[in-house]
Amino acid sequence: MKKMKRLAFVVVMVMLASILFACAPAEAPQDGNTPEDAAQGSVAVEAEDTNGDGIIKIGVPVFNLGHTYWVSWVDEIEKLAGEKGFEVISADSKFDAAKQVNLMEDMIAQGCDAIILCPVDPGGVGVVIKEAEAAGVRVILSDLDVVDGDGNHVASGLVGIETYETGKLEGKWAADYAKEHFDGKANVAVLSYPAEQPCLDAENGFLEGLKAELGEENVKAVIMNGQAETEKGMTVTENILSANDDINMLWGANVECTLGGVAAMESRGMTQEDAVACAFYTNPDVMNLIQADESMFKVTMHLPPRIMADTAVDMALKAVKGEEFEYEIKVPFELCDKTTVGSLMEE
């Protein structure tokens, strides 16, 4: 009963938030810097104004402040602003591509020297990025790249993530769990989110990781769109369970839909003895669940917002100063299970 109350509380808290947009080794830049080095380097960069108003300005049209990841991400940027003396102009795009474009245009007009963003729609933001760069506003992308019709980068830099390899890593973890608990069989309810390419890449990587370890004949995947929402994840999982009584694994494109799926499973009397739940991305509530080890929710992939933000700020400041840097620096995800969650929560 305590477990059910705990999960119910987490589900209610998550439903108050909006949906998410979306630990392979990082590819080190040619200068030898790791993402951690880049983050530390941001502290050493002296911000220089290029608009003559005495202070450097960085615009941040945030992907979606309804998700805890992006709240932590922009909080870190604002913390760095306080430490280094640059100004942050931030606003919530609310997962709305048109709104994000309008915010960028406003930030250009307000005299920002740089803009940092994760594009809601990479295919629709290229024109305004080109406008910004032509006006001397350096654009640093997070998570997703943007290219023109010839395949050329349109921004000044990219803080990248390796979602497919991350999914494979989590798939290997799930395969090991299946070997130990389910006789090497993985019958997976997959709560997909094809609207976001990183989530789709992670899903494909997860299933590939499972099949590579267990053999394709021992992996069954029932895939439905969980729409990255708790209520939808619950409904979709109920539908999958109604048609498949052998499900012993759940994978979700984010923690919101996965929590809905776990609630659906537990409402049918399923426990951690019957199934394991895995998710792409994490949040503090789920990390608490994993640490307590009272739920079937056993593993997620943790993308440190602090390092993502610090690396983006470092690149933005260097771009404004005209310093050279690698176009893309990749930040690794970290596997978050009961053996690692304690240290990750301390970050």
Rank of each mutant, 00 (worst) to 15 (best):
A132Y: 02
C118N: 13
K130T: 13
E105S: 14
G124M: 06
A135C: 06
V120D: 06
I108N: 00
M104E: 10
E131Y: 03
A97H: 10
K99Y: 05
D96H: 07
P119T: 11
K130D: 14
A135Q: 10
G126E: 14
A132E: 01
G123S: 10
A97T: 07
G126K: 14
S90I: 05
D106Q: 13
D106V: 10
P122A: 06
D96C: 12
K94S: 15
N102G: 13
F95V: 11
K130N: 11
L117K: 07
V120F: 06
A91K: 05
A98C: 12
V120L: 08
C112H: 04
V101C: 12
M104H: 02
D96F: 03
D106E: 13
Q110A: 15
G111D: 03
I116F: 07
I108P: 00
V128K: 03
L103K: 02
A109G: 12
V101E: 05
G124L: 08
C118H: 11
N102P: 02
C112V: 04
G124I: 05
D106R: 09
G124W: 07
V120W: 00
I129H: 05
P122M: 02
Q100N: 10
I115D: 04
D106H: 04
G123V: 07
P122L: 04
D92N: 14
I129E: 02
I108R: 01
E131D: 15
D113M: 03
E105P: 01
I116Y: 01
A98N: 14
E133T: 05
M104Y: 02
I108S: 08
N102S: 15
A114D: 03
Q110C: 02
V127D: 15
S93W: 09
A98I: 13
I129D: 04
D106K: 07
A114T: 05
D96I: 11
M107E: 01
K99E: 14
N102A: 15
P119V: 08
A132Q: 04
L103E: 14
A91T: 13
Q100P: 08
Q100L: 09
G111S: 09
S90E: 01
A97P: 08
P119D: 12
G123Q: 11
I108T: 08
C112A: 15
A97I: 11
G111T: 02
I129V: 13
M104F: 04
D96A: 12
M104T: 05
A97W: 05
Q110P: 02
K94L: 12
K94E: 12
A134C: 01
A98G: 15
E105V: 09
A114R: 03
